[in-house]
Structure formats: structure tokens, C-alpha cells
Write a protein that binds this DNA or RNA. Structure first.
Lengths: 96, 96
DNA sequence: TTATTTGGTTTATAAAATAAACTTGTTTAT
DNA sequence: ATAAACAAGTTTATTTTATAAACCAAATAA
């Protein structure tokens, strides 16, 4: 009746990050922080979790002299997101 | 860009309870427990939270000699659910 | 009559989310 | 040149949640 909701994606901030990366294909820390209106600490933690799960790939480098953290969604991330959305439907679509 | 997700509804079990009550209009503890595959303790706690928020109304009585806890969604609950679903769309619908 | 089951509630534990504090290095102003 | 402020994060601590384990009262079964 109700499909399990992947707990890694069932989090407001992580879901927003994934949603952003799905559309943007690539985004850096500062941009994600702005778009999601999150704090740096929270964002740092949640990006790590998504990265550890293999849902995103994080590349650290510099732009000029400033450190830059760039994120990309992986294929596994895309699949997990699609599955999550599918599972959500079992909750939000009326059961006749 | 991303709408806030009502934290009271952004919980797997509470969402399932609300989803059930939206379709069923009324359901008792045992039925909800079965359909959601939840434990009694967890269900008890989450029903209390939904009730405290005014999203459901709990009526305790007896059926024969057995205690019975019956739940109904309130209008506030219906509204909150609809808003939650609307907010969700800001995460799962692609942003062009 | 003493288990066992039913229908829960309460309390304790584990996990998560979030915020506050800190680090490292870079500008900017003095 | 030096100090103050800022940028980009990370780490640690705190609060909140979710979940499970333990418990309770009443009814039924053995």
C-alpha cells in the first residue's frame, strides 16, 4: 500500500539539493546554499551524506584563490530520486 | 524556489496516516497499524502528534468489550495535507 | 486460575537535523 | 605591515525526531 521512502532523500534540505542538481546538472556550495536558504554547516553535512551514498559527486578546487566545492548528481542519484518520487505517489495520490 | 515542508506531515508514518484518513474518512488504531505496518508504540505517538496539531480527531470508545480508538481527519488536516502536497511539487517538478 | 492475547500508553534509546563555534585563507581598511 | 572583517567551508555540540522496548489493564483461552 505505502512504498518505503528512502530516508536519505526524505529530508527537506537533501531533497532540495537533489532537486537543484537534477535541473542544474552542476552547482557549487555557495549557489546551493543561496537557493536552499540553508546554513553552511547544515549544507556541508547534508552534502557529505549524499556524497557518501553515491548520489552526488563532489569536486573541490579553487576559483582564483577561493576554495570552491562543486557538486554533480550521479546516475545512482537520478535513479534514487525517481524511485523516491514514485514512492511518494503512494502517499499523495488518493487510494480508490 | 522551494516551499517549506510542514514538518508535522513530512514524516513517513504521519504522512501514511493522513493519506489513509483522507481516503477512509475514518479508521481505527488497529486498522491503521495494519495498513501502515507500524508498531503500536510508534503509531500511538504519531497519532498524538497529529491530534495535538488538530489534523485529526481521536475518539476513544469500546466496541463490545474491546477498547477502540477511532480517528478522523479534520478540515484543518485536509488543508494542511493539500498544502504539503503543493509544497512537495516545488521539489519534485523540474524547474525549467 | 493462570497464561495469553488485545489494544493500547509510557519511557528509553538511537538517529537526524540544525545551529553554534571554529578553521583557513583572503581581502580591505588603517 | 597589521589588524579587522570576510569568504568558504568543516567540526562539534545541541535539540528534535523517530523508533523500539517495556509496560499496563482488561478480556479471553487453556
Amino acid at each position: 500500500m505505502f512504498k518505503d521512502l528512502n530516508p536519505l532523500l526524505h529530508s527537506e534540505l537533501r531533497l532540495a539539493i537533489m532537486s537543484l542538481l537534477l535541473s542544474a546538472e552542476e552547482a557549487d556550495f555557495v549557489y546551493i546554499k543561496e537557493q536552499t536558504k540553508s546554513t553552511a554547516g547544515n549544507l556541508s553535512v547534508q552534502l557529505d551524506k549524499l556524497s557518501s551514498a553515491g548520489y552526488i559527486k563532489i569536486a573541490k578546487g579553487f576559483i582564483g584563490k577561493k576554495p570552491n566545492t562543486s557538486c554533480k548528481i550521479t546516475n545512482a542519484g537520478r535513479v534514487a530520486f525517481a524511485e523516491y518520487v514514485d514512492a511518494l505517489k503512494s502517499y499523495i495520490i488518493p487510494h480508490p
